[in-house]
Write a protein that binds this DNA or RNA. Sequence first.
DNA 1: GTTTATGCAAATTCTTTGCAATACT
DNA 2: AGTATTGCAAAGAATTTGCATAAAC
Lengths: 139, 139
Amino acid sequence: MANPGSLLRSRSLRKTQVRTSILQLMMENKIAMSERELEKLLNNQCDRVTIYRTLHTFLEKGLVHKVLDGQGSTKYALCHHDCSAEGEHHHDHVHFRCTHCEETTCLEHVSIPHVNLPQGYQAAEVNLLFEGLCPKCRQ
Amino acid sequence: MANPGSLLRSRSLRKTQVRTSILQLMMENKIAMSERELEKLLNNQCDRVTIYRTLHTFLEKGLVHKVLDGQGSTKYALCHHDCSAEGEHHHDHVHFRCTHCEETTCLEHVSIPHVNLPQGYQAAEVNLLFEGLCPKCRQ
DNA sequence: GTTTATGCAAATTCTTTGCAATACT
DNA sequence: AGTATTGCAAAGAATTTGCATAAAC
């Protein structure tokens, strides 16, 4: 189940060069990536617009999620474990942005504790972002 | 202490028309606002660039904080209580974005519970974002 | 053979920079 | 008067849209 082809098939998406490469990259590098970073990693062989559209498609199908790290461009990362397309999607995301190396990592094994919201608020999704120094940059 | 003038004075910022208006708006509407929204609320009487620069200045001086709500443009909101300029700034922010009315509200009275990060991570700042329906839109 | 994805050109939106004019203390 | 802020013009990113071509099923 952990290869680009089967992931694409599981969402009824056509298996193309670009989609396969992007999934591959996201599976290797476990950090959140922006369109620009992907473009570079793909050696500019692939059109910018295609990458944007691919990311949108993946988002729609629940293969990736947006990562909010407060920097210029939007980043995306693979969804793990229980993710599935719209509806039963796993809606808790925890990320750590290193202010030194600027990398944003998904902290898969950290779970968000329950928080009591004020009366009337109904949350469907939760994002938790830490900022500081990652193990590599802390030395 | 809760008026634009004294806030500006407390950070050694000159009291200008634009700064006063923006602070006023942020104090009235307790939601996070983008440059564009401020521009509209100010009836386009004020240059876009000035608003951007004002927000940067406020951010630097610890009067506002960035709000990550995963939408197009960056939003900002007033800092409350113990905020002060760089260094002792209050670094926990909790927000709720309503997917219906698109408003992002600061949940001032919700505090982020302690979370154990994996070995080696050192967090200086935490952001928690909920997305779902706000009391108004839930009916 | 259809349907869907890609590439290219170009438009939009968001944000930043430089410089001269203006407002603040 | 002197310094910080504003407005305008313009540049630079990030992101989207339309349409013809190419690839997938």
